[in-house]
Design a binder for these strands. Structure first.
Lengths: 331, 331
DNA sequence: ATAATTAAATAAACCGGTTTCGAAGGAAGT
DNA sequence: ACTTCCTTCGAAACCGGTTTATTTAATTAT
């Protein structure tokens, strides 16, 4: 590997001078500068980021923490948005794996991992309220961080999320417009902010529209097709059945499977409205409340860059949007 | 951030001694070692990876290059396999974004980016024959690298891929078993090794089984539903129509759409067999030749670790497997 | 008691950069 | 001709670690 010393030697100048040229600082004569640039080019030289990071504390690297985000339809798209913005600004992404340190003589967690790698900032996704305690040291540190879908704020922390409450209201309002009164909801994991927010929105709309609320129509589980499938089977056995179901996309697909398996059809017998708009849902022509996943990633990135540059810290709430597919009908 | 110097000062020893304790080297007395460990723990100290990497040239970071791999169903799962193995071995993953360097006074490419970040090795995916020239310097360098689905070998380079030729043969053989004779193939991008391999396998099987080969039944495009959709529409207009179609999953789904749109059905009118077994295909109950995506990622990781440790360089070819869904029937 | 051996600890150089500060040299001012 | 003021440049310290070579101290051998 060719280093700054090699360049300095070949150009017969000191390494300080080369450094000044690299960083385009003043204090270097035009002809010297030209000579150094020429030698750099000839030797295909690029300053080593690691060494640079050691002295500047800036690495042009953004850390990403997120358990299971790679096998998650939703976060995968968020990741895409992050890549677009961060790549554009010259940052690479360091994806922290979940190695368990056996020799863990210290409490080695998010904050330490970030300091350890000198990341300029970190994006956290896929975490719920249950995990909050783990973030304590990170929040108190001066590491710029942005959470996705978890409303944490701090001196160097902020978050982005979708308008989950409003989105859920929108879903109920749409179903009500179509004439539905009895609406079931199957929720994802309880410990996650998005779930509770959507539940709140659901209840707000039910109340505002004076629709019946029946606790037998409320289910929760995890964000899986299985949850949708099992919950729907129970719905199909109820005495008083709802006519429509609101659930996150993957859950909604599970519910559709259960309905079809029972020899019924969507939207003939049940109207189903999803939430998220993940790609798979599109294949089912799911009517859904869409979030802007890529937009979430982009917003998180821009917000993080703002925090890094000490500009703005305000949380960002992105709007949702109704996408009309083929799984809801007028009754 | 607490540094080795802080620890040395508090423990009243030199930093060399602390370093030896960190690395569990000999030459430190038991009581000294214990004292230092205690202070490290009290101060929640963990040695900085960046500084460490600067002197050792080892970063415990694996680079990942791959254009568009985040919005690709296939590579996303490969990524998952990589994370599992690399995480387990204590490596983090550096995902290189595609920033264009305006000030690009040098030919700053794969090799340079790797050297620049001191990655211990790199996994390259999503590249085709067309890109080979760009890898020249990387291959000649001493950076351990593993390509996925591109058969490059070098002193520090190897590759993993699926048995695409065999898999394609398997697809044709299965269709033949079901009684199909006229088989069409819709291929993905021409410049990619996997496409040509599958085409070769297809032709081998056609010949071996003495089936008719008709160039009108051969199509190519990209790996998109649109390609499948458009190609299938053309098939539907042929005078002499095939009875079965072989295509990568996403393409196959596009083909199914075209068939259904024409008022026909699968497998009633056409049998469709896919290749890949991406998650979306499962929702269509696609009969397909499955690759083991996660296995590819795992194999690539293990191979890369072997190269890093100067153990083994042999390319790895993973077997494929027929998954019988509901899109093929006997004729 | 002295020399030789061994173990423990440290000083110093190094990794490849950045940054501060002072020296050298030329131009301008008087 | 002498001071003053820039501009250009390089020496040296620094970032937080590792590693080599050497010193110091304790142990064993003679």
């Amino acid at each position: 590997m060719v280093t700054i010393n090699d360049i300095a030697k070949k150009a017969k100048v000191s390494k300080s001078t080369v450094s000044k040229v690299i960083n385009n600082y003043s204090g270097v004569g035009d002809d010297t500068k030209e000579k150094v640039l020429k030698i750099m080019k000839e030797n295909n030289y690029w300053p080593n980021s690691v060494a640079r990071s050691l002295s500047t504390k800036k690495s042009y690297t953004i850390g990403i923490f997120g358990p299971q985000i790679l096998n998650n339809f939703f976060f995968r798209e968020v990741f895409e948005g992050i890549e677009a913005v961060m790549g554009d600004k010259g940052y690479d992404l360091l994806y922290f794996t979940n190695k368990q340190w056996d020799e863990s003589w210290v409490d080695y967690s998010y904050k330490e991992k970030c300091e350890n790698r000198n990341v300029d900032g970190v994006i956290m996704m896929g975490y719920g309220k249950v995990n909050i305690a783990q973030f304590d040291r990170l929040l108190k540190s001066d590491i710029p961080s942005v959470f996705i879908d978890l409303d944490l704020v701090g001196s160097n922390t902020s978050y982005v999320t979708s308008d989950n409450t409003g989105g859920a209201r929108k879903a109920v309002e749409y179903l009500a417009e179509l004439g539905h009164k009895k609406i079931a909801m199957i929720r994802g994991l309880n410990g996650f902010k998005v779930s509770t927010d959507r539940f709140v929105g659901f209840q707000q709309a039910i109340k505002a529209l004076n629709l019946p609320y029946n606790s037998e129509w409320m289910f929760d589980g995890d964000y899986s097709m299985e949850t949708g499938y099992q919950s729907m089977k129970r719905i199909l056995n109820l005495d008083e059945k709802p006519t429509a179901v609101f659930a996150e996309d993957l859950i909604a697909i599970g519910a559709i499977k259960a309905i079809r398996q029972a020899g019924l059809n969507v939207p003939g017998d049940y109207s189903i409205i999803g939430f998220d708009s993940i790609e798979i849902g599109r294949h089912y022509h799911l009517t859904t409340i869409a979030q802007d996943q890529i937009g979430l990633g982009e917003a998180a990135s821009k917000l993080l860059l703002n925090i890094i540059n000490k500009k703005s810290f305000s949380p960002i709430i992105l709007p949702t949007r109704l996408i009309i597919g083929e799984t809801c009908r007028k009754v």
